[in-house]
Design a protein around this nucleic acid. Sequence first.
DNA 1: CTGAAAGCGCTAACAC
DNA 2: GTGTTAGCGCTTTCAG
Lengths: 341, 341
Amino acid sequence: MNGRHSGRPTLEEVAVRAGVGRGTVSRVINGSPRVSDRAKAAVEAAIAELGYVPNRAARALAGNRTDAIALVIPEPETRLFAEPYFSDIIRGIGAELADTDMQLLLTFIRTPKERARFGQYLAAHRVDGVLLVSVHEDDPLPDLLEQLEMPAVLNGRRSDLESVSYVDADNVGGARAAVAHLFARGRRTVATITGPPDMYVARCRLDGYRQAVEAAGSAGASSELVARGDFTEEGGRRAMRELLVRRPDIDAVFAASDLMAAGARQVLRESGRQVPSDVALVGFEDSAIARHMDPALTSVRQPTEEMGRTMARVLLEEIAERASVRRHVVLTTELVQRDSV
Amino acid sequence: MNGRHSGRPTLEEVAVRAGVGRGTVSRVINGSPRVSDRAKAAVEAAIAELGYVPNRAARALAGNRTDAIALVIPEPETRLFAEPYFSDIIRGIGAELADTDMQLLLTFIRTPKERARFGQYLAAHRVDGVLLVSVHEDDPLPDLLEQLEMPAVLNGRRSDLESVSYVDADNVGGARAAVAHLFARGRRTVATITGPPDMYVARCRLDGYRQAVEAAGSAGASSELVARGDFTEEGGRRAMRELLVRRPDIDAVFAASDLMAAGARQVLRESGRQVPSDVALVGFEDSAIARHMDPALTSVRQPTEEMGRTMARVLLEEIAERASVRRHVVLTTELVQRDSV
DNA sequence: CTGAAAGCGCTAACAC
DNA sequence: GTGTTAGCGCTTTCAG
């Protein structure tokens, strides 16, 4: 015997109690305007008395939707972006969804097999929309989503011409502000440690650096002052060592991630240089680890939680209006000055 | 017109294709043994050809279940426990659920209102089970869960007599090992900074400290050597200052959280003491922030990701067997020695 | 072993 | 405006 009739009230019982038809109850629940105030009141009273809560499954089945959205997390990234970034994004999404009936599903993609499975998942319409974080340029998921006409919002974008909706931080502006800050403080030889060139976010931050260098009317962005990192701490160390060899006269460094800034700082200190008196250092705050590694490290902060909220909001809008209008939002960053450069 | 018939194959179509009845297809899908190999093969072939994926909503409606579990996150905690702890737990849960058809739902509880809403949520059977992290002694949720006979697993426990299933770390053993380590290294006057006494985890760590002190045949756990913190960095600073006033001769400190250890370290350094040469410091790694704050800080590490995996596994078992058998799992901790005390 | 049939609780036409 | 009526796609008896 199946647990038929679990004991909790159904829409039908509410209808009987309120002395109306099921359709009317359904209309009230779904906020249809085509209901008399009288009927509406009766239904609401009945719902309250019975403690009625609609059955999601039934609603999903009949309505051909799920009232759920998926947050896709590519596993390799969580370790790097990890920590605060990740949980801030989730917190933001959760906050935006709190007043909704939308459920947030977490989906990890670790292996190609899981990626394939997620494709099926989407095809099976098991969610109404998808939120994607840390998308790579060669990620096939966004295209799949588009092809399936599944509402989706990325955090960050694959390139300038991103077609899918996205919410991003103003990486160019943030980097420019950081580097301008260094020049304004009297630094002359400002180097940068970049992220992987195949990541759009890394290119943006490099662009910002270059713009600030040009604006400062400096000797121009000497390629000697640009070292490539990979957003990791170890990458930051390597890049910093290179820079020190190529240009021992460096008096400031803009690292395109806080992890790289932390690595660079270690190398600088080992080399006997004082930070920031000898070499000023500014990081881009991706993981907020900077907060803990060095409370005095000036950095460009992204509004991570707000990005999460915005992503959710944009997705909900996209789900609501069937039309596939793409939205592109770029949130400003903030330079948090903590040192005395 | 509603998007009736979304285009993707239904169980019925599979049945036709395989030349069997719907019931048989259902049995194959659900791995019932009462199906002939012949029929099974035909059905599997049809499923593959059609790319059939069962409709969750329909299945949930008919089967009176949801195939989803909720991870409940009390908001105030995420900031403290935050970061790696939080994401490690989630990662572990995700890993365990990967091969299942179970979905992971994230539920934040920020306000009393949301707490009430979650009660309804549970009563409405919108999930098959619940995972709770950072439970407080006075949290009403576990009792509600028990009363509703809803499968549930806690991370940590409210007290020695926890009735609900839980997965916890061996806090007593970890603390004991940490303090024993300090004595073994020749330290004589070992103080401790505790967590709030109304948290079971804090009491366990204090117990571990006391056991080690007694075992070392020390002068006994002088209450002068015990200062109360609240698991925060600021609390660690306050407690450390107190200790320094009461017993300037301290040569080691066991802090019951890494955040407090970080606070203590600051105070020690400001007071001119060298860490660890003058005063050795060991923290309990809750947020793994220690890793970033001071790579050389020895600490007791909890198997966070494994706790997540175990929680999920235990919950799935509890859901599978209708019987309400409680399981209590305590995972061992590990002393990660990073200094040269 | 397997087909047929009866719902699960809700939404969305469709009449009135 | 509102009741009635079909299903949504699946699981689970119940006969055979």
